[in-house]
Design a protein around this nucleic acid. Structure first.
Lengths: 194, 194
DNA sequence: TAAAAAAATTAATCTAGATTAACAACTAAA
DNA sequence: TTTAGTTGTTAATCTAGATTAATTTTTTTA
């Protein structure tokens, strides 16, 4: 890959650390570009998650399909976010989750083996990846607590507030599955809210 | 601290990386020992979380007290687990959560400033801390999904299975608050399960 | 050892949100 | 421009789990 093609990723890294030109080309040599259409899967549960994706445009969701076939959205990801099934990626075992594009989506792909090499080549990046994990954990803990302490309505209002961009990009029934409620109930709630 | 006093922490680290004797004494110089009685707070919400705790004996829980004063248990921690309010610890801003001892508890304390120094002194430890974060994130994501896809009964059975040790150490109403149900409902469920 | 405090149980009643099912609106392709 | 697929709405009914409140059991402390 050329440096210009992975500019969004470099900018993302440079929020936390600064990079020399040679480091930039090193990074470019470890990643590749992916282009996907709406509906495409970046990962299917049951397969091993062999790469992490950095979204440069579009929108994806990661979700779990339960025993009854009901889908539960774990997260949406848009521009400047990372996605993967982290458990599968780390252990290189079968994934529990699916990752699906909700629009035409461009990603920068960091394969498992290259991630190791990348971190060996530029150990300062450890900090960046660590921060990413910390942030994700804080958000996940908050979501657990919110699930316990807030009503569906309060969770929806909070979501609408914080993720307006996402709400505009995804079908309503996926928002419901992110909030942990049925699409019917979300529809009812939205009507009440006018 | 002497090396022998922090043996459990060293063993914990040595699951992932090996340490020289001089590194061990370095570690010892960064941490201190804490001894708390049942009911004591390691952290009160509103204060800054100035340290991470590594539990060597006893049991603690981290919980959130909501607007109505209802407590929601985010996690229990026993021997060989770390606890802190990670958001507050990282940002050094006021904590949202409380950490309370549920029994006489011995901890090894790693203060905020010393963590930095420790990681600078022994950069290989970054990997250990990263693994810790990854594991915590995987568990948290699973918990979100379980909250959406399982009944209270299924969640309880799973908890009982996985955390039998913890269940034996903590009052039932805290298990309920971990599962996201009321103590009354847990009591009813347990009766049905016989 | 009694008294007080903390934890657990029970049962009746209530409700947020699920389920079901029919229908309507929108989108996209042929 | 029709057809089929996808997404969203509405309304009736149902239920897992909450709430309330009284009572019992267990633990702690004096």
């Amino acid at each position: 890959m050329s440096i210009s093609e992975i500019e969004p990723l470099l900018e993302h890294f440079e929020k936390d650390i600064s990079l020399s030109d040679s480091e930039k080309s090193q990074i470019a040599s470890f990643v590749k570009i992916g282009n996907f259409r709406k509906g495409d899967y970046l990962l299917c549960s049951g397969n091993v998650c062999k790469e992490t994706f950095f979204i440069t445009s579009g929108c994806v969701r990661i979700f779990y399909r339960d025993q009854k076939g009901v889908e539960h959205t774990i997260n949406f990801a848009i521009k400047d976010w990372w996605v993967s099934d982290i458990k599968s990626f780390i252990t290189q075992e079968a994934a529990d989750y699916d990752i699906q594009c909700l629009a035409g989506t461009e990603v920068i792909i960091l394969p498992f083996e290259q991630q190791d090499q990348l971190l060996q080549a530029i150990p300062r990046l450890e900090r960046v990846f660590k921060k990413k994990l910390e942030k994700a954990l804080i958000v996940a803990q908050k979501r657990i607590v919110d699930g316990f302490s807030l009503t569906a309505r309060e969770r929806y209002l909070q979501f609408r507030d914080k993720y307006a961009t996402v709400e505009a990009m995804v079908p309503q029934y996926m928002v419901a599955s992110y909030l942990g409620i049925t699409k019917e109930f979300l529809s009812k709630m939205k009507k009440e809210l006018e």
